[in-house]
Amino acid sequence: MDLDKLRETAAEVAARDDVKYLIGWEKGSYGYRVAPAFAEDADGTADMIFSPLCTANLATYLTLVEKLPLPRGQEPDNRKVALMVKGCDSRAVAQLLVEKGIHRDEVVVIGCPCPGMVDPALLSEKYPETEEIAELKWSDDGFIIVRNGEETAVPREELLAEKCRLCRYPNPVVSDIMLDEPVESWEPAEDEEVTEIEGKEVEGRWDYWQQEFSNCIRCYSCRNVCPLCYCQDCILDRINPSWVFRSVNFSENTAFNIARAFHLAGRCIECGECERVCPANIPLGKINRKLAREVRDKYGFEPGLDPESEPFQASYKPDDPEDFIL
């Protein structure tokens, strides 16, 4: 992607009178890190980038923003929020629109057609991170790591993130401005990880998740990073009554993880952020993708594609299958 064009467009949008701020990506403070960046004016966009390291789904900031009580006499700032989105991120925006979590006139969506992100954990494992800020670029058949002026070419398959292997929508489905020509979609890989777990006996599955959920430290980074986990009053924060106890053990951790997963059934757009941010390396993507598979197979429904559609849980068709209802 042409970064000059990206920055030029971002500067124009950030300078607009009807735009409060623009959210994009910037190089981080060291190594491979990329940080979300907030620009209130054109100057703030000068260092913005789009690279294979821009995994963060910025759509989460649309609903994460705190609406504080205003001093008497002060009017709320109702200007638009502009944000850059990849294909998967745009599906989160579309799903938020479907659920009326946001309204179309509140956002300016800048689409970044996405050739696929690297898996940051895999990248650090194979090409250890150093304190020098490194860059990644796309090449025709993979990625190029640029560090201290030296370029290392890496085949696509070696570092491509799992969610990107499975991706069916690399081009933004909602956008006001597109930064580039659409990328050519690739044949999504078979989701073997989910198939493998489906193939296990119930006990085997239980053991597997018992092990994984026992590692959960309940930091709730998976919930907070999720663009579609935006309840004002989350079941997990409730104290009286306490639906899920604060104590950290397999039982409560499982209650939390199941609640999180089920609340995303038919809503998760598979951006993979929950799994990326989990400090305990719990493969949350597998749970979400299993539920997405169920919804896709049973109802032929995929969330976050058409902002005009109805939410999956709130729609009904006379020919909905019922064969699995006891």
Partner: peptide, 25 residues
Amino acid sequence: SASCLGCGTCTYLCPTCHCFDIQDE
């Protein structure tokens, strides 16, 4: 703090963070 997600990763993984809550279960 603009990009902060408000999760507990930094504090839960901090060896000196010691804040606690007390609840009856």
